[in-house]
Amino acid sequence: MTSFRFAVNVTPKPGILDPQGRAVEGSLGHLGITGVSAVRVGRRVELTVDAVDEAAARAVVDQLARELLSNPLIEAYDIEPIGGASSTTSALAGEG
């Protein structure tokens, strides 16, 4: 088995009202910043999956993202591999 690390980025779908994004945008004036628009606030979830290969790991992340981490009615997600793969067996050398 190999460990794969991913990030799942969940964002409000286009057209969904995002009051958090609006509040962030509203505060920009207080920082003296101009020219920033279309702020959307989402969520990022990082996780490690043990699987035989990257495709299998990604399939697990995809299911998780679809069924738990996002609500498909209101949110979109994308999956981003991070940190590269590491072999579980070598990482746990000496065990079992």
Binding site: I16, L17, P19, Q20, A23, N71, L73, I74
Partner: peptide, 16 residues
């Protein structure tokens, strides 16, 4: 709503 047993979703209050 999350379980899909009734339609729709409940978003954060627009007033925050």
């Amino acid at each position: 709503a999350e379980a899909g047993l009734v339609p729709g979703a409940l978003l954060r209050n627009q007033s925050l």
